[in-house]
């Protein structure tokens, strides 16, 4: 059995667990704990180690989806999770501009860990106070060449679109590599 992995990362409460849950064929193995930090009490629990989802491709191939812990004090896990990934998705909460800077930092950190393709996804685009994609692109300082997609992490079709765009990027990079 061959296995490959894609990492889903982003700031605290960006929607990583929901994103993986939407497409995983198994219940997401999630290591959640009650939140201790006062400043981060936007929700009651958070991922402290990782989320783990699975998509079986065929008898011979399985794709694993790993979600990173969102709280900054668990960032020591990031490098471990990024090892050997095909690519990564950076999820950003469109309605919380105070997290954009952290999202940018996470993006740069993962780019430094591994030179793999990535896409950025603006989650919670269904919320009334969600920022426009173009405004977010400027705020996140994303180059026009970086794939930046709207998503609602609970909507399977939109999550599929994000993962497909990442896989297209991986394929394009392989082809550009002269193979």
């Amino acid at each position: 059995m061959q296995t490959v992995k894609i990492v889903v990362t982003g700031p605290f409460n960006a929607g990583k667990t929901e994103f993986i849950r939407s497409v995983s064929e198994i219940d997401v193995v999630s290591t959640e704990r009650k939140i201790s930090a006062e400043a981060e009490k936007v929700k009651s629990t958070t991922t402290v180690a990782m989320d783990f989802g699975r998509i079986t491709v065929d008898d011979d191939l399985v794709l694993y989806l790993f979600g990173t812990p969102g709280q900054k004090r668990f960032d020591f896990m990031w490098e471990i999770l990024s090892e050997g990934m095909l690519g990564f998705v950076v999820l950003v909460d469109s309605s919380r501009p105070e997290t954009f800077r952290e999202a940018r930092t996470i993006l740069e950190t993962f780019r430094a860990y591994a030179p793999t393709p990535y896409v950025v996804a603006a989650n919670k685009q269904d919320k009334e106070d969600a920022w426009d994609l173009e405004d977010m692109r400027v705020a996140l300082r994303l180059d026009s060449k970086v794939k930046f997609l709207p998503v609602v992490a609970t909507d399977k079709e939109k999550v599929k679109k994000v993962l497909l765009e990442l896989l297209y990027s991986i394929l394009a990079e392989m082809e550009a590599g002269g193979s």
Partner: peptide, 27 residues
Amino acid sequence: TLTNQRMFPTTNKEEQKSLVNRLINRI
């Protein structure tokens, strides 16, 4: 360059492309 050996279970470029295409079809 992409550290393909670590990312993919195979080092063969054609097999790697085939693997990504299988992932795309599955998703």
